[in-house]
Design a protein around this nucleic acid. Structure first.
Lengths: 213, 213
DNA sequence: GCTGGTATTTATCAAACGATAAATACAGGG
DNA sequence: CCCTGTATTTATCGTTTGATAAATACCAGC
């Protein structure tokens, strides 16, 4: 992996290309040229094709590396753990999740992928809905002393409300890493204030939303 | 502007090209080919260059058309009008603003522009900060009975909190128009619940944030 | 209905770009 | 130290793509 060695083992070279490709496409977009990518790595352009059959296939691997690799299955358990107050669960979860999202490569590639390959990002958003949004809705109801319901009995407005809360962290990352604007507060502060504000507000609005239905 | 006529006046043709270019680039991204754009309009590709010196310049015009054209200066006055309760002001404003944002071309081109031309989108976000976010922070303080302050005396956490609230509408539009996911509730409902939840939560958290400083 | 101005098209260039095949040079095993 | 396998480079092809120049055809005004 050092810069001096010229011949690398196939495994090392492939990993090196993939790592640099993530940075490169996050910067330049997917229409970045393979020649530029090769320059950045310090290899010749045809060598890329020894390791990846086509540019398209390299991009596919970039997706997998970035999104499959950074999802933590234990989050799903954490959110459901009723031994811990919901506020603490949300704080703990979003302090981890917001750190994953607040990453230049992660957010930029997710956005680029959305513009090109909708089916891939649709799958990712469905995962978020099933594993995060709907469970949080259910836990909210329980935490507010409302009767427990299954995911299918939730109302659209309360789901949308949790989506909105969740999107808060997405938007901060877009401002920072896509629009290159300074953000006003550090992640921990932002998570803390967002979670408290949301929970305080939701304790009032959710009972009205589901009660009035 | 009808499909039958072959020769259009320069003004009409330019407008037609621009309108179609907005749709086209929103769909295909800015690396969409000029030949495809011309096909879609029903003209030949070189004709584009009679009206726009280069592809780059056409894209510049697309930016202007979409962002300069859809900003309503009266929003700034509305938000400051203390004869109306803040909740009503926010409801009225975001019911308009969310409709502008909830538009396929608007959101997709804003995102594409962020990936390519940061300086343009940075200017737009600065506008939002100055004309929307900071004024809302000030009005929030007043509405909560706190002493009035200038924009320069606001604290980072409270600014970040309002950014987060604002981003709510951005994220909904991204889910819908970039990731092509169904949204759970219509705009009016979503605006209503978001504003109430935010204001209810902020009434508790903002005094603590600014009081504890 | 002809004619002149110009909106539009046809033909084409040059550079950019993804991809492939053949040549080369590095490194480990004997 | 040489030799062999293969990682890597050099040379190059075929398209694609933004852009230009010359040819054409539409339409208004006399």
């Amino acid at each position: 992996m050092s810069t001096s060695r010229k011949r690398l083992s196939p495994a090392d070279r492939e990993k090196q290309i993939l790592t640099e490709a993530i940075r490169f496409f996050a910067d330049q977009g997917f229409d970045g040229q393979t020649r530029q990518l090769a320059d950045r790595i310090g290899i010749t352009q045809p060598l890329l094709y020894r390791y990846f059959a086509s540019k398209e296939q390299l991009i596919e691997r970039v997706y997998q590396e970035v999104y499959v690799g950074r999802w933590k299955p234990e989050w799903e358990e954490l959110l459901r753990d009723r031994d811990i107050p919901l506020e603490e669960r949300l704080l703990a979860f979003y302090q981890q999740y917001a750190r994953v999202v607040d990453n230049r490569e992660w957010i930029r590639i997710l956005i680029l992928a959305g513009m090109k390959k909708e089916e891939l990002t649709r799958r990712y958003l469905s995962l978020i809905r099933t594993k995060l949004i709907l469970p949080i809705c259910v836990e909210l109801r329980v935490s507010l002393g409302l009767p427990e319901v299954g995911a299918e009995d939730l109302t659209p407005p309360e789901i949308e409300l949790v989506w909105a809360f969740h999107g808060t962290f997405f938007y901060r990352s877009v401002r920072r890493w896509v629009y290159e604007m300074p953000v006003e507060a550090d992640i921990d502060t932002m998570v803390k204030e967002s979670v408290t504000t949301f929970l305080t507000g939701a304790s009032t609005t959710i009972p009205r939303i589901v009660g009035g239905a």
